[in-house]
Amino acid sequence: MAEGPRVDVEVENKRAAEPPAGTAHPNTCPGCGSHYREDELVKALRVCPHCGHHFPVGARERIRQLADDGSFVEEASEVRSADPLGFFDLRPYPERLVEAEMATGLGDAIVCGRATIEGCPCRLAVMDFAFMGGSMGSAVGEKFARACESAAAAGVPLVSVSASGGARMQEGILALMQLPKTIGAVEELRDSGGALLSVLAHPTTGGVLASFASLGDVVVAEPGALMSFAGPRVVAQTTRERLPDDFGRAESNFRFGHLDAIVPRPELRPTLARLLRLFSRR
């Protein structure tokens, strides 16, 4: 008797950022085919002015979109990934890290720090899908945990913006342990009276959805964001089920009661400011 189907839930979307060869320019809208200059897209918060498609946003640009000008001060930037397993697949893990750093200018897949949004102080933890699929290894888990601790110490809410394919398999079991680690940090933040406001950007899957991203006091997502534990390809392959068109999307999750709201990007900053005001008055 054959073994049961194997479940590969952690990394389904890690390759989603690489378009297949010969596909469109990154500034061409996959929704309607409109093409934009870089400065046009930045000005439009990377939302297609024609059809409303939400393009991916890097961590630095996301922080510029959300935080008051000049208010962001990065924290824990010295935390970097190590290579605890000496992991080598077709290429060594450290080589992939260096490549990701060169491509994104980031130390790892999350940027954390203090900021104000419409004058309300908070801590920000913003993930970047372009850095190894936004995967969570020890460094990402550590930086997120420190962001919780920093928020608790300052008595302000933590705003997380996740975009991740899941746990970073190059760190093996230690990557899986970042789930309970970040969850414990959220619990500590709560014990101190602090709040977690969780924003799910496309895609938030695997180990990040199965840890802090789902545990916000308020959980919102961007329109069309994929937020599933197992990605659509794995589900289709494992179960041979026909997937609904909106499988795992924010809209489907909202219908099933897993989200408080779907917030289009232009409304995200005022929405977070409103929540921060509410959580700071008690």
Binding site: V7, D8, A213, S214, F229, V235, T238, E241, P244, F247
Partner: peptide
């Protein structure tokens, strides 16, 4: 377990959130 079940209904019922909670 080989893993949590990756199915349409499992996702609709909130697999990621259930594992986190």
């Amino acid at each position: 377990t080989p893993g949590a079940y990756p199915g349409v209904a499992a996702e609709q019922h909130g697999q990621g959130g259930a594992i986190a909670r």
